[in-house]
Design a protein around this nucleic acid. Structure first.
Lengths: 98, 98
DNA sequence: TTCGTTGTTCGCAAAAATACGAACATTGTA
DNA sequence: TACAATGTTCGTATTTTTGCGAACAACGAA
């Protein structure tokens, strides 16, 4: 047994994976990877959850660094955080390659 | 608002991502992707968690279909579930590509 | 100013995840 | 038959996640 057993990459990968660990959040990221941006209202129309719940999911994706929001009164435009999304790609590619 | 909003792929991807959403489990999968198999005892030596906790993590990876165990008395040999691992690769590749 | 639109935050409840040690099961060995 | 080695399961406690509605905040329009 050691003290620091996990690398930063392992911890970062776990954080990202956890952020993707819910169908609502997979749905959002899939949408954003296809159409570059979207509004919370669009999602709210399509997803069977309360808007407060949706807001929490968006917040988690933001906290994990996967998306970012830009105010576009009176809405908020959500986009993928390109830099971190590429990092996620690298981390997963590295893990998934045999 | 609809009734069935999530595809099977989205749900499966969320399940896999969730299984990878903990540093211990990332550690295990990383190890297994490098060396094809390992024993619980090896992991127990390296990870700072109780063996019962480790057992639970292994069980989760098994439930998610990412690994499989084979009895090799008096130990259990854990390997990647190749078929599902490739499925995971496909799902992530699909999600992560821009 | 009052209203409508958009979305967040708060307070709460229920469920799931995480972790531990003790007890148990299995099997080979002394 | 005892004992040791290897893991799992059980019981419990704590923390985190998920979800909702109500209330709130920001801002443009009537």
């Amino acid at each position: 047994m050691k003290k620091e057993v996990f690398t930063d990459d392992q911890k970062q990968l776990a954080r990202i994976a956890r952020a993707l660990g819910h169908p609502v959040r997979v749905y959002i990221m899939e949408l954003l990877s296809q159409q570059s941006c979207c509004y919370s209202g669009d999602l709210s129309d399509e997803l069977p959850i309360a808007k407060s719940t949706l807001s929490q999911h968006l917040k988690e994706l933001k906290t994990a660094g996967l998306i970012q929001g830009e105010i576009e009164v009176p809405k908020i435009k959500y986009c993928i955080n390109q830099k971190n999304w590429e990092l996620a790609q690298d981390l997963f590619k590295n893990l998934l390659k045999k």
